[in-house]
Design a binder for these strands. Structure first.
Lengths: 363, 363
DNA sequence: ATGAAAGCGCTAACAA
DNA sequence: TTGTTAGCGCTTTCAT
């Protein structure tokens, strides 16, 4: 094959130099060349110099595939997320890639779209690729057969953002229950009684659902539980919940329901960016004003949330730290330095201007 | 090493089954087992069945590292972006991963933070990993030594989003010049004469700069050229430009300058999401209203742009298509199916409600 | 301090 | 239709 069009080809040898080529040129054995290049074992100073020079001259690039084969380690990990173009996953993945790279691991990224079949495939592919470990955002709260592998095929595994029932592997997640609880308590403090939840979940079939779909992930159940816990025992009933896919359109439909039903919700907790935007869209459609007619808190601190008018109160999750924690746990497991159990990072309520006080308006 | 805590270990063999184990169990040779598993060559029906059964029973997982070593192909590609957590890159990367996966390639993702040194490292690492091809968002418009490799070490390369001067490799980008031109023309049609540009670039050292920094990428120069082209020959001078890092804070400072200088800019083109948010922040700080006192158009159609009030007009780029095109070009190059040259995808001006008409306000 | 050689698991050319 | 076997490039005992 000719060299790439337009790229200079100063090459003499068409094929990449191998260790043996370096060894020949330095007039040593493969073993010695390997030692000099790898910086281990005993090598004479002058010999080492010759080898290094030869390697440079031949433009030698270690074939890590061969090394991986020999060593049984690829220095690669796999990340399996629902969708890398989603802001939460892309930030968490960024942290994972950074952390892994600093420890000498490169990162494969695979998407599942929260589809269990794709997740099963992704895990199989990564196992075939002989990655040294996996970080997975599981799409099902209960299915884990595909993680249960035998012998050395069972690579270290860390779950991200969601727990899987019955699977005892290290899991890095945030305190979603506490986060939701705090948000609802903020509403309650401001006198809200009719509170709605807009919940994004891939488990929602088509439109907007009132009942919790089968197979929602732990993040969803935790947040719902946190909201319910905050409202419990106050004689104000349960929150009104709408489940839908994570899209602005679906969220808008859900928000419309919450804002037109009787009694109408005066405060809404959105579980992510898309749901929050759905509320904004619904309010503009109904001529309602955020922070006045409708109070809003959303999970995840997006860049736009503090800039829009009024700025939006949010439950911020430490996304980078979450990815970092997962990667750190994985690398420790790969190195056999003890296995972490559950890592739960705290959320932070950032109160801006999207929650109205309905107390002083009474009577 | 013991099996993962909590994960069942039904394994007999501690080590993964190899081809030879399958062959033994099926009572055939390695070659026959390989043929049955690989689905090539001639294999008797009954024999194939025995092999497949044996593989299943032994939980055989092809060691693709060994295959890669033998074949000289890893079925892996590398993507080198500035920052995967950035919305543009994460969407493009999503497309690349999808497209590559469908063609049987997995994807390494590496970040450079638009730092040439990190880019050089990233390329070296991927070459060592013996990826079959690379897609790079180059951080420099002129430096390309690190792409110029010898012989078979020179893997197929496709550039994404930015051109590199003097490097003749396939490049997938958008018509940024045309996009900027269209946006400015929209301003002109609405009577704007004092037009500002807020340009995000990693080449900006610290704060807000009036002169173009050294080493801005082609996307930046194209957009600036497009804006200048639109204004040229109309006797309204040049656009006022502010260059800064891509952050809301820096953009806000830049917008503040544009909105307080004499003559003050009545219309601003922002080159990305962060810059647009900076304009929003500056306007709110100055008590100015978008779509009335200040007109705004931004590159990239973010989900929030259509939901905020007023909705924001944008220059939309086909980001997914861009990534798809890059990946398709790369895979063709890997397969030796002819080399694509430059791919330039059109942008689309979506006019919403953030551009005021200053014509009818005259006198 | 250096070298010889085995072998990681797979594929394909060749032989039967 | 099936089997034999030679490597792919590297690391690492073991011997010198």
């Amino acid at each position: 094959m000719a060299s790439k069009a337009g790229r200079k080809d100063t090459s003499h040898s068409e094929r990449p130099a191998r260790l043996i080529d370096v060894a020949h040129r330095a007039e040593v054995s493969r073993a010695t060349a390997a030692r000099a290049l790898g910086g281990y074992g005993l090598v004479g100073d002058e010999t080492r110099e010759r080898v290094l020079t030869a390697a440079r001259e031949l433009n030698y690039s270690t074939n890590v595939v061969a090394r991986a084969m020999r060593a049984g380690k690829t220095q690669a990990i796999g990340v399996v997320v629902a969708d890398i173009s989603n802001s939460f996953f892309s930030h968490a993945t960024r942290a994972i890639i950074d952390t892994a790279a600093r420890a000498g691991y490169e990162t494969f990224v695979l998407n599942t779209d929260d589809d269990l079949a794709k997740e099963v495939d992704a895990v199989r592919i990564l196992i075939e690729k002989r990655v040294d470990g996996l970080i997975v955002v599981p799409s099902s709260p209960t299915q884990y057969d595909h993680f249960v592998l035998e012998g050395e095929l069972a690579k270290p595994l860390v779950l991200l953002d969601r727990r899987v029932e019955g699977l005892r592997v290290p899991t890095a997640c945030t305190d979603d229950r506490g986060g939701a609880k705090q948000a609802i308590e903020l509403f309650l403090e401001h006198g809200h009684v009719h509170i709605g939840l807009l919940v994004a979940t891939a488990a929602a079939r088509g439109g907007v659902e009132t009942r919790q779909p089968e197979g929602v992930v732990s993040t969803v159940t935790d947040r719902v539980a946190g909201a319910q816990e905050a409202m419990a025992g106050r004689g104000i009933g349960e929150p009104a919940i709408r489940y839908s896919r994570s899209s602005v359109e679906a969220a808008q439909a859900g928000a419309l329901e919450l804002l037109t039903q009787k009694p109408r919700a005066t405060a809404i907790l959105a579980t992510n960016e898309e749901m929050a935007l759905g509320v904004l869209a619904a309010c503009s459609e109904l001529g309602l004003t955020i922070g006045k007619d409708v109070s809003l808190v959303s999970f995840d601190d997006t860049p736009w949330s503090k800039v829009i008018a009024p700025s939006m109160s949010v439950v911020k999750r430490p996304v980078y730290e979450l990815g970092h924690a997962a990667a750190t746990a994985l690398i420790k497991a790969i190195r056999g330095e003890g296995r972490s159990r559950k890592i739960e990072l705290p959320t932070q309520l950032i109160d801006r201007r999207s929650v109205a006080n309905v107390l002083k308006r009474r009577r």
